[in-house]
C-alpha cells in the first residue's frame, strides 16, 4: 500500500471543490477549463476556473478527476491553492508546490502533481488565447509512444524538477513506463539538460560577479572584501581587500570559500587565485 500523507488521504476522502463551473455569462467573469490526461493513461483532470476579468484573478476553481487517490487529492489541492490568486501568480505554481501542499507524494505518484500544474496552465493560457507551453511541447516528436510523451515535455520536467534518472522521469510524466523502448532516449534528454552549455566569457564574468556578491557580506562582516580582477579560461583572479588582504587565513578563505562557491555556482573547473 502507498504511504500517503494525512493531507492526501483527507483531500481524497473529503475532496474540496469537486464538480464543474457552469458559465452563467456573468458580466466581468470568464469561465474556462483545462483538460489533461486520458482514460488510457489511467488518470485525467478537467480543471474549471472562474476568472475576474478586470482583476485578472481566479475567483473560483473546481475539478473533475478520473484517477487514483493522489490524483484526486492533487486536483483538490490545486483548486484550493489557486482560489483568489492573480493569474500571473497562479502560473508560477509548479508541480513541486502542489506536492508540498499535500505534505509530499510518493515518488511513483509525482505525475499526479504534474497533471495538476499542466491543467492549470492549459486553462489560463486558453483564457488568454495563447498556446500553452506544454501544448507546444506536445508538438514535438513523441519520445514515449506508450504514454504519448514528447521529448520537449520530458525536457521540461527534467529541468523543473532537476531529475537525474529515467526512473524519476517515469514517475513524473510516465514516459518509459510502458514498453521501455524509450528509456535510453530519456537518458539522452537528461544528459542534454544536465550538460551545461559552454559559457561565453561575458556570461562567465556575469555569473562570477553574482556569485561573489553572495560571499561579500560574510567577508565584509570581518572587515574584508573581494573584487574580481580578471578571468582567463578557467583561471579567475580576485583581489582580496581590507582585512582579507592581510589575514593569515586568507588562503583558506580563497580556496575553501570563494573557489568552492564559484565551482558550485558557476563552473566546476574554475581555479581561483589572488593577485
Amino acid at each position: 500500500m502507498w504511504n500517503y500523507s494525512e493531507k492526501v488521504l483527507d483531500l481524497f476522502y473529503h475532496p474540496l471543490n469537486q464538480g464543474e463551473i457552469k458559465d452563467e455569462q456573468e458580466s466581468g467573469m470568464a469561465v474556462v477549463r483545462g483538460e489533461v490526461g486520458s482514460i488510457a493513461c489511467g488518470d485525467a483532470l478537467r480543471l474549471h476556473l472562474k476568472i475576474d476579468v478586470t482583476g485578472d484573478r481566479i475567483i473560483d476553481a473546481k475539478f473533475q478527476t478520473f484517477g487514483c487517490t493522489s490524483a484526486i487529492a492533487s486536483s483538490s489541492a490545486l483548486t484550493e491553492m489557486v482560489k483568489g490568486l492573480e493569474l500571473d501568480r497562479a502560473l508560477g505554481i509548479t508541480n513541486r508546490d502542489i506536492a508540498n501542499y499535500l505534505g509530499g507524494l510518493p515518488e511513483q505518484k509525482m505525475h499526479c502533481s504534474v497533471m495538476g500544474q499542466e491543467a492549470l496552465e492549459k486553462a489560463i493560457y486558453s483564457y488568454r488565447g495563447l498556446t500553452p507551453a506544454h501544448e507546444e511541447e506536445e508538438e514535438g516528436a513523441l519520445l514515449c509512444t506508450c504514454f504519448a510523451v514528447t521529448a520537449n515535455r520530458v525536457k521540461r520536467v527534467v529541468q523543473e524538477n532537476r531529475l537525474t534518472s529515467a526512473e524519476e522521469v517515469m514517475r513524473y510524466v510516465k514516459a518509459g513506463g510502458g514498453c521501455g523502448t524509450c528509456l535510453s532516449a530519456i537518458d539522452e534528454v537528461i544528459e542534454s539538460v544536465l550538460q551545461p552549455q559552454p559559457l561565453t566569457t561575458v556570461q562567465k564574468i556575469g555569473k562570477i560577479e553574482t556569485s561573489l556578491d553572495g560571499i561579500r557580506p560574510y567577508l565584509q562582516a570581518d572587515g574584508g572584501d573581494v573584487e574580481l580582477f580578471d578571468v582567463e579560461g578557467d583561471r579567475v583572479s580576485v583581489r582580496l581587500k581590507g582585512a582579507c588582504g592581510s589575514c593569515a587565513s586568507s588562503l583558506a578563505t580563497l580556496k575553501d570559500v570563494i573557489e568552492e562557491r564559484l565551482r558550485r555556482e558557476v563552473l566546476p573547473s574554475l581555479v581561483v587565485e589572488a593577485v
Binding site: L9, F12, Y13, I39, G42, D43, F66, G67, C68, T69, A71, I72
Partner: peptide, 10 residues
Amino acid sequence: YIEGEAILLM
C-alpha cells in the same frame, strides 16, 4: 470511468 486504486482506498 473510475479508477481501481481509488476504489480500493474507499
